[in-house]
């Protein structure tokens, strides 16, 4: 099974449509059905709590899917981006600082996205331009972001205004179960959802998406038909950074409303697991992000109520343990295939 654009041009997911239902697809559909049934059951049992958990799920998923989309554009182009964590953190910092100083959330978002672009360009410069090992290059971003944001962190600064507030999408918000969770959200969440759909179409059907797949699978072949591999990789990794930058802005200005040291808390890494689980497609990643977001939301809910007496630390482990299981299971059962040129620097002869 290929995890990229399949040969079938109309393939909705990354799978080659004509090969029928793969075990993975059967499992994911079965999982989705079970999940929906469970959610419905819980909703009937305790509407308020279920709504809270679903809201938390979407909130956590938004950050994860933005990071995952950043990661997948890079990986489809052949570049591993392990620096998403650093991109989140750095852009959250600049978004917060600019919003606080200017009094404009929008300028904050612009600053966050710009920072993400700049960090993406740095990753591209290191891994594409200087052909540094990609994992080391990403690690450099993470350490640099932690160091710089700690150094410039101003404990006394506050946002000085409310964070982004929810916007009700008319009657849609009144739908049972999903109404509040999906259609009564702040603006960046909607933006992220739009980006998921747009990017999905672009990656699987556009000329850009096809060329991106080509430079990730066989850069040499792409070069022989006149595609500038280095240039496209630079562009892709840089632009993908903008998505992570949006994630950072979302984190600081919409999800939390402030900046704290190391506030990304490992979610840049979780985004990679989300990307892998979502088979490097935006819609797949969003499904995976909802699943991971669900574990995070559960964690929050467990801590708030005392129905279950589980120590906070064990609940806190949940998303990370799930990630390990997912990554291991993907290897054991998934036969997931990476883009063939993933991780290999491309050298123009």
């Amino acid at each position: 099974m290929t995890a990229g654009a399949g040969p079938d041009l109309a393939a909705a997911s990354g799978d080659a449509g004509m090969r029928g239902w793969s075990p993975q697809r059967v499992w994911s559909v079965a999982g989705a059905v079970v999940l929906v049934a469970l959610v419905w059951g819980f909703y009937a049992w305790d509407g308020a709590q279920t709504t809270a958990v679903l809201g938390g799920t979407v909130r956590a998923a938004t950050l994860l899917v933005l990071g995952a989309m950043c990661g997948m554009i890079g990986e489809r182009s052949g570049i591993v981006n392990i620096g998403i964590e650093g991109q989140f953190l750095m852009s959250a910092f600049t978004a917060f600082t600019v919003a606080s100083m200017s009094g404009s959330l929008f300028l904050g978002v612009v600053a966050g996205v710009s920072t993400g672009l700049a960090m993406g360009w740095m990753l591209a410069a290191m891994s594409v331009g200087l052909r540094t090992d990609q994992i080391i290059a990403g690690t450099v971003l993470n350490i640099a972001a932690l160091g710089l944001t700690s150094f410039f962190y101003d404990r006394g600064r506050s946002l000085g205004q409310p964070k982004y507030q929810s916007i009700e999408l008319g009657p849609l918000a009144d739908l049972p179960v999903v109404g509040t969770a999906l259609f009564n959200r702040p603006p960046l969440t909607y933006l992220a959802l739009v980006l998921v759909v747009v990017l999905h179409v672009l990656l699987l059907r556009s000329v850009w998406g096809m060329r991106t797949t080509a430079i990730g699978e066989h850069p040499g072949a792409a070069a022989t038909v006149g595609i500038d591999v280095i240039r496209l990789r630079y562009w892709n990794v840089t632009l993908a950074g903008g998505l992570a930058g949006l994630g950072g802005a979302y984190l600081a200005l919409e999800s939390v409303g402030t900046f704290t040291r190391a506030m990304s808390g490992g979610r840049g890494f979780l985004a990679l697991a989300v990307m892998i689980f979502g088979r490097r497609t935006p819609l797949g990643a969003y499904a995976a992000a909802l699943f991971f977001g669900f574990t995070t939301a559960l964690q929050g809910q467990f801590q708030l109520n005392d129905t279950f007496d589980i120590p906070a630390q064990f609940v806190g482990m949940l998303p990370f343990v799930v990630t390990i299981i997912v990554v291991a299971a993907a290897g054991l059962f998934g036969r997931m295939r990476d883009p063939a040129a993933l991780g290999q620097p491309y050298e123009v002869r």
Partner: peptide, 17 residues
Amino acid sequence: QLVPPMSVVRNIVLGAE
């Protein structure tokens, strides 16, 4: 110089789509 997981058509038009 072909991209193995892509279809024949896509491989042929790649770069001049």
